[in-house]
Computed example of a mutant assay.
Amino acid sequence: MELGVELIIGVDLDIESLLLFWNVITFGLMMIDKSQARKRGKRIRERTLFLCAFCFGAIGIWGGMYRFRHKTKHRNFVVGIPLLFILNLFAYYYFRWH
């Protein structure tokens, strides 16, 4: 089964390209949140980060956690994000090959 998404601009992208793009965005969210934490600026809610991770963005969040040393002392992130990554893998497998 071929999974693809045709965007409004008429470009047909496969699911892997979309997942890569989404995870680059979630990685960037961690960078932005770390920057805002340092400046004591407006932060991204933890529930938003978890929602993004749940929606196939866990590897980007996970990578951002360790690249920017952000949220690595929060047990819910240290345990939850890898679990969401495993859930993402199972869901990807299910949607891709079933």
Rank of each mutant, 00 (worst) to 15 (best):
I44R: 00
G41C: 00
G60V: 06
I9Y: 14
H98Y: 09
K71H: 04
R75D: 10
A37F: 01
G41N: 00
D12I: 15
M65Y: 07
I15N: 09
I86M: 12
Y66H: 01
H74N: 12
L13N: 03
N76D: 10
K34D: 01
E2T: 15
T48N: 11
G41R: 00
K42N: 15
F56K: 04
L29C: 12
P82I: 05
L49Y: 01
R38C: 09
G63V: 04
W62Y: 02
F56V: 04
M30A: 11
A91W: 08
V24D: 11
A37Q: 01
L51E: 10
G41M: 00
E6R: 13
K42E: 12
E6C: 15
G10Y: 14
M65E: 04
T26V: 07
W62H: 05
N88S: 12
R45C: 11
M30R: 00
E2Y: 14
V5Q: 14
L83W: 08
W97F: 13
L18N: 13
A91C: 10
I9M: 15
S17H: 02
T26F: 02
L83E: 02
E46M: 01
W97S: 11
F68D: 06
F27C: 11
Y92I: 09
K39Q: 11
K42P: 06
T72K: 10
